[in-house]
């Protein structure tokens, strides 16, 4: 019987990619595949140069939302270890924002679960980006393509978190 290790962190500090990847398989012999995603701050967005960005979040709900996304991945695939780290506060181009690492017995579930976690994180975890450009500071708009990416994983669609004003 193998143990399963799921963990999430929301933090201002940077993280060590090598240590996080190695940690997924540390002390175990059942891992055959590890997949990871790392998101970085780009120096341009929507045609403007970006000099810095600030990530706001909803303390308490953020951690819970990430834990629920990881748990959902664990019900869809046979996973051995998952680690999610999301940074908040002020970040500059080339800084790491987010890390998702997934370990499983085989590559199929590791690749799929890693992509699933990112797609759900993009639409369900309460983070908001504000970016500094030469034209001033602006909130980043949500992308429709993120909604459709998340909806791929659900045949019933993904409108559960929409508020509809019923009049």
């Amino acid at each position: 019987m193998s143990t399963v290790s799921f963990s999430v962190s929301v933090q201002e500090a940077d993280f060590d990619l090598g240590a996080e990847m190695a940690g997924l398989a540390a002390g175990r012999r059942d891992v055959g595949a590890m997949a990871s995603f790392v998101g970085l701050v780009r120096d341009a967005n929507e045609g403007s140069g970006v000099s810095a960005m600030t990530l706001e979040h909803y303390p308490g709900m953020t951690e819970r939302a990430l834990e629920e996304i990881v748990a959902e991945a664990g019900t869809r695939w046979s996973l051995l270890a998952v680690r999610v780290i999301h940074r908040v506060g002020r970040l500059e181009p080339a800084d790491r924002i987010v890390f998702v690492g997934v370990a499983g017995a085989h590559r199929g579930e590791a690749f799929a679960a890693c992509e699933f976690i990112m797609d759900y994180l993009k639409t369900r975890a309460p983070f908001w980006k504000r970016e500094d450009t030469a034209q001033g500071s602006r909130w980043v708009d949500a992308r429709d393509s993120d909604d459709s990416a998340a909806a791929r994983w659900s045949e019933a669609g993904d409108d559960w978190d929409e508020i509809e004003q019923r009049r």
């Binding site: 909803y58 999301h86 994180l121 993009k122 639409t123 975890a125 983070f127 908001w128 949500a142």
Partner: peptide, 10 residues
């Protein structure tokens, strides 16, 4: 109860 715009993390 919290109100907020669509999320933009990741």
């Amino acid at each position: 109860v919290a109100f907020f715009p669509p999320v933009t993390g990741g």
